[in-house]
């Protein structure tokens, strides 16, 4: 099974965020906690859903990533676009911080 990470949208501004290993959230996929099996994914998702119930994040879910040299790369176009921002406006979204 491929590795997974947990993503959600932040309540206050809807920004794309990733669950980190210490149970916090980051706007950078590079900071995300990576689950290498179903059990690890279930644990991470449970932690994220607790925070969703507390009201700080919206709609957490797991998605597939490929880890290359320690850096998670999202699989599939949808998550790639969420990670960066609109492909037609490279001046907007997270991609502006990574350039």
């Amino acid at each position: 099974m491929p590795s997974t990470a947990i993503t959600a949208n932040r309540l206050l501004d809807g920004a794309v965020i990733y669950l980190t290993a210490d149970g916090g959230w980051s706007e950078r996929l590079a900071d995300a906690a990576i689950a290498d099996g179903k059990d690890a994914e279930t644990d991470l998702l449970a932690a994220a859903e607790t925070q969703a119930r507390a009201g700080t994040v919206i709609g957490p879910y797991a998605f597939k990533v490929e880890v290359e040299a320690g850096t998670p790369i999202p699989l599939g176009r949808r998550e790639a676009i969420r990670t960066l921002g609109p492909s037609v406006r490279t001046d907007l979204g997270t991609q502006t911080a990574t350039h």
Partner: peptide, 23 residues
């Protein structure tokens, strides 16, 4: 935190506020 997302979502949609990919 008084309203959950499930409770709030129909209220925000009634006011035209959607949640999309980035925002």
């Amino acid at each position: 935190g008084e309203l959950s997302e499930d409770e709030f979502k129909p209220l925000r949609l009634m006011n035209g506020l959607y949640l999309q990919l980035h925002a």
